[in-house]
Write a protein that binds this DNA or RNA. Sequence first.
RNA 1: GGCGCGGUGGCAGAGUGGUCAUGCAGCGGACUGCAACUCCGUUAACGCCGGUUCGAUUCCGACCCGCGCCUCCA
Length: 458
Amino acid sequence: MELRIFNSASRRKEVFEPIDKNRVTMYVCGPTVYNRVHIGNARPAVIFDTLFRLLKSLYPQVVYARNITDVDDKIIDVANKRGQKSEEIAKLYADFYSKDMARLNCEPPTIEPFATKHIPEILDMIEVLIRKGFAYVSEKHVLFSVSSMPSYGQLSGKSLHDLTIGARVEIGKYKRDANDFVLWKPSKKGEPAWDSPWSRGRPGWHIECSAMAQKHLGVTVDIHGGGLDLLFPHHENETAQSCCANGGKPLANFWMHNGFIQLDGQKMSKSLGNFKLVCDLLEHHPGEVLRYVILSAHYRSEQQFNASLLESAKRSLDTLYRCLQSTENLDNIVVDLSTNNGFLALLDDLNTSESISELHALARQTRQGSKKKRVVARGKLLSLANMLGLLQQNPDDWFKKAHDPDALSQQEIEEAILLRQQAKELKDFGEADRIRDSLALKGVVLQDSRNGTGWRRS
RNA sequence: GGCGCGGUGGCAGAGUGGUCAUGCAGCGGACUGCAACUCCGUUAACGCCGGUUCGAUUCCGACCCGCGCCUCCA
């Protein structure tokens, strides 16, 4: 039973072996907090939360850090536009982020470090880089010199030569090389600023992750994750800084990158105006539905996202919850998942898609066969679902909780059901159907059974 | 220009050198007063052209098409 992970650094699946089996470390790049996050930001959060759950089942201790970048030009821009402080904007959206991700059943990471809380560590690392000759000071900036590191570009598979040819960015005149990147830069008046030997300023984009990963997780982390777009330049630069500061020791042994989400067949982009905010989606869909959609595709593939997929995911979850609801009388037992196909699929580079198909197989087994087998299947279903962060609520809540404030109350529904029952007893099926149709129009679906009439919200 | 990825049934989406993905939708049947749910059955796919092979959706090559990164970006 071993976990295999596709390592972006080697571009192949490798058997995962942690540096310390008693303390597995994972660092995932969280958001820069200047607005509400979109569904694309949710994908890595959900994926690495699932990996976190899987790792915890395999190792006694897993330390998962997901950072918050709370000092950045974009935050400053928003703060300026609103006449607020950068810190206020960052705090506001960091809180929203935690809440949004929690609604997707993402557990809180072990550590959620903030860049601005690690300025001393950042300054230390920059000083080391300057002292060792990997960084230089120029016009109050400190820059990392990519030419000082022969292996620069290896992680993302780029050569400095090609980068320079393809460069579309204007070269700052304080840079020796177009690809040199900022470790520290001077702040303008009114911007967040800290004292440093080079200027009163603030850190560049990449350095905070290097400093925070090292402080909380150690020089080399087991797994470093994030969106594919972070591979270059963010992760390339992170690993360059850390590696050079630490005598060649790598920042991470395993690099994992999730693919993009496509909205209605197109890349989500602000210019197209087709990005979906998580908080807007949550107004109309349970968080678990969003999570189910995200997990239904393999994390490395490009994923489609649209309204009909949300609807399909909702129905799939309905089926699973219905199974749980109709088998609540079965004993809850502790099961061993170690030979389960759904669990084994997760061990194979986190194949959540295949794992979800096993959820449906287990649901089927929970509904049929001998009672003993059904009890075991149900135990496995709950256990596997828990590892995926799905089926986390009680079925009655799933089906009956009202999300719309104008929805019929439980009492109103039950009264209508009673009236319909009376009509049915009088064989007045016209009236009975009229009541059922009227409830359906208000989003309530009835289900007759031997034990009476049940209901759910559609 | 450089580097890289992908094209699977109506939709989404795994996977595999040789009977099955799976879900949603569809179709037929059972159940039901009729439905819903559930159950049983069922339709339907591997971009194109070659090659390797007894056999290829799966391996190899060419081609077509789409996409990503190289600039902030999950």
